[in-house]
Design a protein around this nucleic acid. Structure first.
Lengths: 212, 212
DNA sequence: AATTAATATGGAACGCCGATCCAGAATGTG
DNA sequence: CACATTCTGGATCGGCGTTCCATATTAATT
């Protein structure tokens, strides 16, 4: 009940808007009562973030297609869940200790094992994918969470693009000619691009291409 | 000067240990004076984190080998720099606005352009790699930053591994048989494993394997 | 039904933090 | 030498996480 209320407050006011006083008022109680059920604010936020991961599981299709496809769908479901709760993105950590983080990593590992990769690489590859999913999601989503409600994401990107455009092309040849892409890009596509790159690498390693 | 002192304090006491009062005392001044030079604590940590990125550049070799190799070396240099300043890991964000983050992304983009990838994919691939580097580094390193000075990383991993071992193998088949890997793994190798997976995917896309 | 232990509450209080204020010192300018 | 600007640093404000503790509620035991 407490965690649900915390998630609601975090969704509404962002991370800095979650206060024990406010949460207590929302639940018609005092701050002291909350501390009977948890030790820390850190613990509360961790539990709230883990709950968001739980939403991702509920949304992810689990029908038995190829392992690669299912891995991809799972990753995208996590991204989407974090995108709906931006404050959570920077709080899903590894190695996993909380319930849903554990489930997620186990599911990834099971799927990786099904690709035919040699067993001694399962751990390294599974964690690499897990790290990509949560880490890159956090990178993409967190800036949006930091924004004031006033400035939209588009305005923020436009502003950044403008700064890039003002850079000296001699020092920043790449950025200077890429401002248009920055302004127009879609966060979700960007996440998926990298994901496919990673999964392609996985497939190449799993069944090496025939020698030319 | 302020940023340097902030970095020193962050290195010594972690993120929660950086205080305007403490920083002011360290510099023989008052908190008010600091606010003349910056607007926020957020801005201060952002600048401090960007400075750490600068260290990475200083350490990265820039000799003209293959673009892929240089990309790899640059990524590892960033990881190592963040590993030496764990508090910074969760504060390097994208899209880039600060000086060294801009330099990093531009460098990555320039190297990606050199791989022969079609131009319209440069932005997506470069940002994907950039996101991987900072995002996955943050995932791997941040837990270490949160640890009390008392508990070492090994103790922490051993503890987590024990929890995994206690899980029901029926519910968590993968984790239950992977505790040994967790206990023994090396963070840096783990980062590199995923990085190579990603770069492999990049190479495959850049020059597609000859049809069988 | 009465007694007592364990569990849970919630408001007041503590210490500390980010941030602001502002009188005045230092520095440069005509 | 006046004067505007830049810069300082200590006092102060409001608010936060957290703790404390007297009280209420529930469960277990006689």
């Amino acid at each position: 009940m407490i965690v649900d209320a915390a998630v609601a407050l975090l969704d509404e006011h962002g991370e800095r808007g979650l206060t024990f006083r406010l949460l207590a008022k929302q639940l018609n109680t005092g701050p002291g009562a909350l501390y009977w059920h948890m030790t820390n604010k850190d613990e509360l936020v961790a539990l709230a973030a883990d709950q968001v991961l739980g939403h991702a599981f509920a949304a992810a299709p689990r029908l038995g297609v190829g392992a690669g496809t299912e891995l991809r769908a799972l990753a995208i479901a996590v991204f989407d869940a974090l995108d709906r709760h931006p404050w959570a993105a920077s709080h899903v950590t590894a190695p996993a200790t909380l319930a849903n983080a554990l489930r997620l990593l186990d599911r990834i590992g099971t799927l990786v094992a099904r690709t035919g990769l040699p067993a001694e690489r399962h751990f390294a590859v599974a964690t690499a994918i897990s790290y990509y999913i949560t880490g890159v999601s956090a990178q993409i989503i967190t800036p949006c969470a930091t924004l004031d409600a006033a400035t939209s994401r588009d305005a923020y990107l436009a502003q950044t693009a403008e700064r890039w455009a003002e850079l000296d092309p001699a020092d920043y040849p790449f950025l200077a000619r890429t401002t248009a892409d920055l302004r127009e890009h879609d966060d979700r596509d960007q996440f998926i691009t990298g994901l496919d790159l990673l999964l392609d690498g996985l497939n190449t390693t799993a069944d090496p291409p025939p020698p030319a």
